[in-house]
């Protein structure tokens, strides 16, 4: 297929924008979750509202708001930056809930022991909470990554030629929509499988090293 390079270019765009959002979205989600977990006054409520609204917003609507709306509040964003920011904001809200649920479920006994031995809040989090919480959150975080990739076609509305857009363009030009769409489907599947494979690999690594039941 002569159109393969175009398709792969689209795939590259999808992958890079998604990757940027994934990499930044995980720590951002953690930061938001910690704010709520520690019940920081005022900020907690702001985060709660932010998460609630963003989780209810379709990716397309958010992308349109960020790209077309940001000049109104004095920020000028290029399409790619707006695209990455959209996915980042979206995924950070979902990641916040994932991290928060793990933090809330964290056994208080272990924290009590850490407190009793004179560990400061930062030390407790770094040595006791985080090493365990990232492992329990991993499956949900990876699931959210796959959802992010599935939401990424929304970015076409702000002019990003992602994998789906590329496939649709090829189909429109050749009057044969089926082959490029099917090829795109395969590529998305590969991306998802790659993520899930990476997750299984990390889990196996952790299990061998730490021998956790």
């Amino acid at each position: 297929m002569a159109d393969l390079p175009l398709l792969l270019q689209g795939a590259l765009v999808t992958a890079s924008v998604s990757l940027a959002a994934i990499v930044l979205g995980i720590p951002m989600g953690l930061a938001l979750a910690i704010v709520r977990w520690q019940r920081i006054p005022v900020l907690s409520q702001v985060v709660a509202a932010y998460v609630s609204v963003i989780r209810a917003t379709p990716a397309i609507t958010l992308a349109l708001l960020i790209f077309f709306g940001s000049p109104s509040i004095g920020i000028v964003l290029g399409a790619t930056a707006a695209a990455a920011l959209t996915l980042l904001i979206n995924t950070s809200a979902f990641n916040c809930e994932i991290w928060r649920s793990a933090l809330i479920d964290f056994p208080r006994d272990q924290l009590e022991a850490a407190r009793a031995y004179g560990m400061s809040p930062l030390l407790r989090f770094r040595r006791i909470v985080f090493p365990q919480v990232w492992r329990t959150s991993l499956p949900a975080l990876v699931n959210e990554m796959t959802l992010l990739i599935k939401a990424s076609p929304a970015l076409a509305v702000i002019g990003i030629v992602d994998l789906t857009r590329a496939a649709s363009r090829i189909g429109a030009a050749t009057y044969q929509p089926l082959p490029p769409f099917l090829a795109a489907t395969v590529i998305y599947m590969l991306m998802v499988m790659l993520l899930v494979g990476a997750q299984r690999f990390v889990e196996r690594l952790v299990r061998e090293r730490f021998d956790l039941a």
Binding site: Q110, A116, Y117, G118
Partner: peptide, 24 residues
């Protein structure tokens, strides 16, 4: 503050009913 209390807590060892060991 919590941080200042840490100096005292570390001078007192504590053993709990449910052991409270760190599993990782």
């Amino acid at each position: 503050t919590e941080r200042e209390l840490c100096r005292y807590r570390v001078r007192m060892g504590m053993v709990f009913q449910h052991f409270n060991l760190w599993p990782h």
